[in-house]
Structure formats: C-alpha cells, structure tokens
C-alpha cells in the first residue's frame, strides 16, 4: 500500500525563491518517481504546521515524517549543534559542501541520531549561504566600524557573543519586528544570508551590506525513525539519494539567487556593498573565535568539544583543498 511522507518546513512554497522549497520539491519528485508512487510525499511549507522547533517535535513523534530544521530550531533538542556557529570558519561555499558531505557531516548526523534516538538525519541542505551583516549607520570595512551599532540577533547566546566580540551591540528582536525595527531605527543592523536580506526587502531600510561571511548555518534534513524503520532497503536507498539531490538543489538555488537580480547584482543598486580585505577578516576572526570557543568550553560537554575539534580540522582541510585535485 502507499506510504505517505508528510514533509513540513518553515519557508515559502516557491521552489525558485527559497532553497528549502527547492530542496523539498526535488526530494518529493525523486522519491515519488523512483518508488513508482509507493511513497507519496506531501509538503507543508510556510510554517503551516507550526514553528520550526515544533516541526522537530512532530518528526520525533512521527506526526509528520520529515522536516528541514534550522540550527536555531534544533538547538533546544540538540545543544551541541552550536559548534556550527564557529565564526569566520569557512573560506568559501565550496568548503561548506566538503565539510557537510564528508566525515564531519556523517559524525554530526550520527550524534544527532544517537542523542535524539527517534530521528534519522539524511543531510544538511543550504539555507541560502553565509550570514552577512547589514546596517543603516555606516560602511563596515574594519572591525572598529562595528562600534556602537545595534545589531539584531536571534536569542542564541553564541550569536550574541559573536556580535559583541566584534564591538557591536547585540539585541534580540522577534523576527516580525525586524523590518519595522530597522526602518524606524530601533535597531541599526541585522545579519542573515543574502537571499533572506533580498526577499525581506531589507535594502529598503538598510544602506550598507558587508560581506562578512561570518557564519554558515545549514538546515538539518531529518526523518522520523518510526517511518524509516518501516521502509524496505531499496526505499531507504531511494530516500538517501533523493536527500543528496535535495541538498544539491538547495546549494544550486542559493548560488543562483546570489548571482541573480535577487542577489548581490540587484542589491548593489540599492546598497553599498563592502567585501572584507583578508587582513580585516583575519582580525575579526581573531576577535571572535576565542570568545566563541570559551563559550563552548564553559557551557558545553566533552562530546561537544570533540565535535568542535573535528569541525575545525575538517574545515581547515576543506579550506585548503582545491576542486578535482
């Protein structure tokens, strides 16, 4: 009989506008086609079923069978995910592919599965690339330029610490208040990947965009273990390679958005875009990484430190490697 896989996520239902829906659309298509209709995939986009954190709980309870969850949303269930917030870690997008498709991705997936006990992790799709910082006060090219700028962050201690270590002020603000907060000057700046900056129309209320590339925060694609255990081996295999294509699609769409009018090309007409010099980026890295690592040492456990070490090793390997060589 037909199995139904309900797949919920917190982004808009447009496969050409956001990486999450691109990923689910590709996943659904491959799964339905390659199981010859044996598994039907129903996608629930746009937070129809609740917040991102509720989606995690629903997958754990097998109420829905799959979700894409942000690192912020999974953090309350799996605090060790915070290691991914190591600031200024990656040199480029290609390095993120290598790390999350490689031994570190496998180790992280394995630890999430062991810790939660009721999910299977199939991959780490792109949420839209690196976090950049926008603000309305001044061009930020040097670390000193951050001084006195009020930046909105999520209520993640590591994000707040990173912003503060750069010399800016960190204030948590509900997502629904960010646009008007930026516009009226309640806050001066915020940080997000380029597609989110673009689709949230922040260019209307922010003058300066600095390509800090300081954080990379992927989704986690997770499946209910109850559902997984009821699949045949060939169905499991289908889900695994569908997930791989889903991850590829999310990356492809993120890069396309960045390159299109909805990305930097469009934003540069409305905002001053600043790329960091290697020296300034190194200064920011030196300012923030020790603060972050101290936070992990203070609040994390041994397993988290082990993951952090592995993450750093794999990132540095990926930063140094070159494609097809």
């Amino acid at each position: 009989e037909t199995k139904v896989l309900k797949f919920g996520h917190d982004n808009k239902a447009d496969p050409f506008e956001n990486p999450a829906h691109a990923c689910t659309a590709v996943f659904a298509n491959i799964v339905e086609a390659d199981t010859n209709g044996g598994i039907k995939v129903e996608v629930y986009p746009s937070n129809q079923l609740g917040t991102a954190a509720e989606h995690v709980q629903m997958v754990r309870d097998d109420v829905i069978q799959a979700t894409l969850t942000s690192t912020g949303a999974i953090a309350s269930y799996y605090p060790r995910i915070d290691v991914l917030n190591l600031p200024f870690a990656f040199d480029n997008n290609a390095a993120t592919y290598e790390v999350f498709d490689g031994p570190f991705g496998a180790a992280l997936a394995g630890d999430i599965e062991t810790t939660l006990g009721d999910v299977v992790v199939l991959g780490f799709p792109d949420t839209g690339g690196f976090f950049e910082i926008t603000n309305s006060k001044r061009e930020i090219a040097k670390v000193e330029d951050f001084s006195g700028i009020r930046v909105r962050t999520m209520t993640l201690p590591s994000h707040q610490k990173i912003v503060q270590a750069l010399g800016a002020e960190a204030y948590p603000l509900a997502w629904g208040e960010v646009y008007s907060g930026l516009q009226t000057g309640v806050i001066d700046g915020q940080m997000n990947p380029v597609p989110i900056i673009s689709f949230s129309k922040f260019s209307e209320v922010q003058k300066y965009l600095t390509l800090t590339n300081h954080l990379f925060s992927p989704y986690t694609l997770m499946i209910s273990k109850t559902f997984w255990d009821g699949l045949s081996d060939s169905e499991k295999q289908t889900l695994r390679y569908a997930a791989q294509s889903c991850v590829a699609a999310s990356r492809g769409l993120s890069r396309i958005i960045e390159a299109s009018d909805q990305g930097l090309a469009g934003l540069k007409d409305k905002m001053t875009i600043t790329a960091l010099s290697p020296e300034e980026r190194e200064k920011m890295k030196q300012a923030t990484q020790p603060v972050f690592e101290a936070l992990v040492k203070e609040s994390g456990d041994a397993k988290q430190l082990e993951l952090l070490d592995q993450f750093k090793a794999e990132v540095s390997k990926a930063n140094g490697s070159s494609y097809l060589q």
Binding site: L173, E177, S180, G181, Q183, T184, G185, V186
Partner: peptide, 11 residues
Amino acid sequence: GILGGVVTPTE
C-alpha cells in the same frame, strides 16, 4: 514613538 524610531509597537 513607533514612527520616530524610538520604540517597537510592543514597547
């Protein structure tokens, strides 16, 4: 307060 950029609607 809201339009002048001092506070959010909540505040």
